[in-house]
Structure formats: C-alpha cells, structure tokens
Amino acid sequence: MPLAALIVITILAHSAFNGSRVTISLYALSLGASPLTVGFFISLYSALPMFLGVAAGRMIDRVGMRRPLLVSTTVLVCAVALPGLVPTLYPLYVAAACIGTSFMVFHIAVQHMVGETSTDENRRNNFGWLALGFATSNFIGPVLSGFSIDLLGHRETFLILASLAATSLFLVYRWRNQLRHTVHDKPPAAHGGAIELLRIAELRRVFICTGLLASAWDLFVFAMPIYGTSIGLSASTIGLILGSFAVATFIVRLALPWLTRHIREWTMITLTFGVALLAYTIFPFVSSVMLLAAIAFLLGLGLGATQPSVMSLMYTTAPEGRAGEAMGVRSTVLNVSHTFLPLLFGGAGSALGMGPVFWTMAGLLAVGGKIADRRRREVSAQGSG
C-alpha cells in the first residue's frame, strides 16, 4: 500500500477516535452525568488497551496486518456509531471501551506496517510522515466535533464521526490486496515474553524515554487548564494556549523529513528532553498569556518531534518477528500514562498546587535526558570509532 494512502486511512480513523472523546464527554454531561462519570468514560479508552497492548502486538506479529486492520476499523465504525443509534448513557460505556481498544489495534498495525515496508534509509522519514498525519487528525477530530455538536447535535455528530471511520474501512478494504501481509508463525525460539524485550538495553531505554515523554505530553494537556484557571485565565484564553501547543506539533512534524536527514535519533530525543525540561521549569513562574503561549509552542516543538526517532529505534532494535510485540509494549506504557497520570498529578496538584507538579515533571525529564544523552554519546563514539 502506498504510504500516502495509509496516512489518509490513519487521518480518517484517528479523527473519528479523537472526535469521539470530545463528543462522549459533552454528550454524557448533557445527559446529567457527573464529572467523575465522564472521567471514567475517558479512562475506559485506555484501561483495556493498557492490559491488551502486548497481546495485540503479538497477534499482529503472528497473523500479519491485513486482518487486524480490517477487524479493528470495523469495530471502530460500530462503536462510534453506537451512541448515535442508542441515545442513552449506558451505551457510552461500551462505546468508550470498544473505541479505545479497536484504535489501539489499528494504531499498532499501522505503525508496524510503516516499519516493515520501509528501508533502513527511509524508515525514520516515513514515520515522520505518519506522525504528521496524526498531528492533522489531532486538529480535525475535536474541531469537527465541536462545530457539529453546536450545529447539529450529539447524535448526529457520532454518526458523522462514524462516517469518517467507515470511509477509512472502505479504503482499507479497497487496498487490502496491496497490504504487505507478512506472517510470523515461528517467532524466535527463546521467547520470554515482554520481560525478555525489557532485557534488551536499547529497547529498555526507548520504553523509559517513551514513558517520560508521554507523561510530559499528558501533563501539559491535563494541567494547563487547571493552572490557567488558578491564575485567572478565561476558558478561551486557555484554549488558545493549548492551540499554540497543537500548532507547534503540526509545524515540527511538517519539518520532520528535513530534520530526520540531519539529526540522529538519540540526538533528537536528547534535545526533546532538554526543551521539555526548560518549559516545565519555568511554567510556574509565568502568568503572561503571551509567554505561556510561547512556552507551550516551544514544548510542542520538542514533544512533537520525537515519535519518528522512537519508532525507528524500536523497529530496528526489536528481535526479528517481534516488532509488533515491541510496539504493543510501547502502547501499554503510553496507556498506563493516559490512565493514571491525571489521577496522580491531579491529587498532588490539589494538595500542593501546580508548581511542585511541574517541577516534579522537570526532575523526571532531567533523568530521562541524562539517559538519552549518555546513549547519544555512546552512539557518537561508536560512529567516530
């Protein structure tokens, strides 16, 4: 399948996924649900993928990518459409769990396909184009949902989002015979499961860095509205600051094809840790809207740039026939962050304020930056030797 077609399929499916999170939250509130209930809905998006990510990766290693893509996109269509067809609160539980789980399988399969169909020379560049697709749908899904809810209503919005997923499914089916279908029926003999992958030093470093950078991303999206409110900013102003972050991620991913030709993987990851560390260190000292937007933009440039480097390292380091499993471990790490970080930092912020929360994140980023920089120096020494 051409990379451009795969990116279009991903944008459509991810727009439906992202838009559904906004729509489920607002629809539940309109039905009288409490904020706690809404929080539970959102946690369902990540709870099952947190436990099933590794198994999904192993399945994709075993059966290839064609069937997982077809089945996961079909489930995504049905799950997104369900609240529009059954307009009560209870179907939202089923919808949230099925949307999150189906997109997790879709996500791993798409990333595995990009890795497997790329060469060593263009793999990081191709992951950069895929990351740009995700940045595009990060904007389309929520914006489309917001306008659609205001103009048409919640039920109609679910059906519109389902139509995006259905278009993605149609394109997957249309291109199914051109999907590279590599089956790994016989994985390596020494198969110690996910723990064995964690024993590989390079993969372990990638998983640690992935978890820390995902936490930095999640904390910003979660904590910026709380911090903004605490210093008296309006909702629209907070939205503009969050928008500054989103625009930066799009811009840096647009530049990734050039960046990946000039900056090596561990250098890019080290720079990202440095940028994020700086941003979180100075956040609590800033109350100016322009400065907050500038810091958010800087943070977006850093955090938006690392995915291709991480994915390229993961794919080339994973044992033969187990790249999907490695991506499943990464998915589990990400979903642990999505599930527990808001609860952990939310409780700390309530007790201590957001300043200590930001500085704690900065300390963790310093540790990650040291790990990444040590590896960067090792790779540089090997290259010069």
Rank of each mutant, 00 (worst) to 15 (best):
W258I: 02
E325I: 01
T73A: 15
M59V: 11
F250T: 10
G353H: 02
A366D: 02
I160K: 03
F41W: 07
R180A: 15
R199S: 15
L161C: 05
S234A: 12
A55F: 12
S34D: 10
L48Y: 14
L203H: 09
Y93L: 13
V206F: 02
F158H: 12
A214N: 08
E116P: 00
N177F: 14
P284C: 02
T317L: 08
E325G: 03
I295E: 06
I241M: 06
T182K: 12
F127S: 03
Q178K: 00
L298T: 11
L36D: 05
P91K: 06
V183I: 15
L365I: 06
D150S: 13
L169F: 12
L159P: 02
N122S: 13
L144A: 15
G84R: 08
P342I: 09
L364Y: 02
Q382F: 08
F158R: 13
L291P: 01
R264Y: 03
E121S: 11
A351I: 13
R264D: 11
T74N: 01
A294R: 05
Q307Y: 14
T270P: 07
H112F: 14
N125G: 06
D150I: 09
P87Q: 10
L29F: 01
A95D: 05
D185S: 15
L144F: 14
F358G: 00
S168E: 09
V22E: 09
V77P: 11
R253P: 02
S168F: 04
P2V: 02
G321I: 07
L36Y: 02
S145L: 07
A109R: 06
T316G: 06
G115I: 03
L352M: 12
T281G: 00
F170Y: 13
T74W: 02
W129C: 06
L12Q: 05
S234T: 13
T167R: 08
G39P: 01
V86M: 12
V172A: 11
G385S: 12
G355C: 02
L3K: 04
G57W: 05
V221K: 05
E121K: 12
S34K: 07
Y280E: 00
L271V: 15
R376L: 00
V63R: 11
C209N: 11
S236L: 11
K370Y: 15
V110H: 03
G300E: 04
G115P: 05
A223G: 14
A276M: 00
V252W: 05
M65Q: 14
V247D: 01
R377H: 11
I226C: 07
P356Y: 03
I160Y: 04
V289T: 13
F245V: 04
M1Q: 10
F17E: 10
L89I: 15
V252H: 04
R376F: 01
A366V: 04
F103H: 09
Q111I: 00
L171A: 00
V8T: 10
G19E: 11
H181S: 04
R58M: 09
L169Q: 10
V110I: 11
I241Y: 03
Y45V: 10
R374L: 14
L334D: 12
V80A: 09
